[in-house]
Nucleic acid binder design. Structure first.
Length: 276
DNA sequence: CCTTCTCCCTGCAAGC
DNA sequence: TGCTTGCAGGGAGAAG
């Protein structure tokens, strides 16, 4: 499911239920997701007050009063659901459950189990293997055309493939890579190292705009994404190219059909007329 | 270091 | 209807 906008949507749903609350119970219904849960994870969560629910790239970071951080990645099909009353019986693929002193039940469900969780001390965060090499947050001041151009300098891969590299910019996945390139008018096949100057500015702006628009719509719900309330996101209706191979390009001044190609093993969608 | 490839897992849609 | 096939939004790790 989740790229940055979907994870941010989940973060915004979890924050009011968790921040300031004490975790009164934590239940693991299996020993692993993609990776084994850290030893004693449930015990280390119980009794902890949640300080904040943050996001870095596609990772949720839940800071605890013990100075530990619970990291959660949603993989491709992970969902959180919040119940503020007695929850229904467990559903298939409900793997983790947290209860709070505010009477909330938070469930993590993940059919494909590509998601994972980790728990580590805040001092270990800077050197955490999954976090240490991440590029800038695209919605932060650290990200702009100049920094994007610098990150792409010397890279021989196609720009679409480079955008999926979390070291270049954090949080973009397969959908928003295609959408951002469409908005920027840049071909996904263009060599990454040729993106600089004004072209890099255009791409950086397009990335920020598409991510902000998607967050405002509650993310994109194709198969799996749900907000923590269970509501769908709506941004998929605003895709210009993703999933629209063969359709007419929505651009007002061109009549091309949207092409679907495979790059780095993943589908890319673009208009060859608008994107150069 | 950079780049490409394979694999992890289940669900779903399309094709037969 | 039922079966098979391919594909899906991510990322680690190995190999080239």
């Amino acid at each position: 499911m989740p790229e940055l906008p979907e994870v941010e949507t989940v973060r915004r749903g979890l924050a009011p239920a968790l921040e300031g609350a004490v975790i009164t119970d934590a239940r693991l219904y299996r020993a692993d997701l993609r990776f084994p849960f850290p030893p004693d994870m449930a015990a280390r969560l119980i009794g902890q007050r949640v300080v904040s629910v943050e996001r870095r790239a596609k990772y949720l970071l839940i800071r605890l009063g013990s100075d530990d951080i619970l990291l959660s990645h949603l993989g491709m099909s992970g969902r959180y659901r919040i119940y503020n009353e007695t929850p229904p019986v467990l559903e298939t693929h409900d793997h983790v459950e947290l209860m709070t002193d505010g009477g909330m039940t938070i469930r993590y469900n993940d059919p494909r189990r590509f998601g994972f969780m980790d728990l580590f001390s805040s001092e270990a965060m800077a050197s955490h293997k999954l976090l240490a090499d991440l590029g800038p947050e695209p919605l932060s001041n650290a990200f702009d055309g100049a920094s994007l151009g610098a990150a792409l300098d010397g890279r021989n891969t196609a720009i679409k493939v480079a955008l999926l590299d979390q070291r270049v910019v954090a949080g973009i996945g397969n959908i928003y890579a295609s959408e951002a390139l469409y908005r920027a008018g840049i071909s996904p096949n263009r060599k990454a190292r040729t993106i600089k100057g004004l072209r890099a500015e255009r791409l950086a702006t397009a990335i920020r705009d598409v991510l902000n628009d998607a967050i405002a719509a509650g993310g994109s719900s194709l198969r799996d994404h749900r907000q923590t309330s269970g509501e769908l996101g709506y941004f998929q209706h605003n895709f210009n190219v993703y999933g629209r191979g063969g359709e007419k390009c929505p651009g007002c001044d061109c009549s091309g059909a949207i092409r679907q190609v495979v790059q780095g093993g993943r589908s890319t969608f673009y208009c060859a007329k608008r994107q150069r």
